[in-house]
Amino acid sequence: MISIVLEVVGGLLLLIGLVLLTISVLGVLRLPTVLGQLHAQGLATGPGIICILASSIATEDIRIITFAALAIVFVALTSPVSSHAIARTAHRRRTARKAQESAEDKTTES
């Protein structure tokens, strides 16, 4: 009985994870800015991956489940940091480009 419940829960988690990954890919392809794309990417690297790793409960293998749990914690700690690094670089580049453009406009006006 428990085995069936775990299989159903695992299957549902896998399905949710795959749906989230698909939406994430759609978002990355659709959104025009890096900062916008990071939200879409966050859907995959956060809840998407967590759901897929959590679906390992269907295996009922304590070793696999422990590995998955450790991987979830590792992903939870590292994905915000990598996303922040990309966001900061994109923001700085955008700010620098805007400053350069406004300086060029002023030069053209004068």
């Binding site: 900062l35 990071l38 939200h39 966050g42 859907l43 956060g46 809840p47 939870a76 994905s79 915000p80 940091v81 996303s83 922040h84 966001a87």
Partner: peptide, 8 residues
């Protein structure tokens, strides 16, 4: 940053 609707 862990939550996808906000990016730091």
């Amino acid at each position: 940053g862990f939550v996808p609707d906000t990016v730091v």
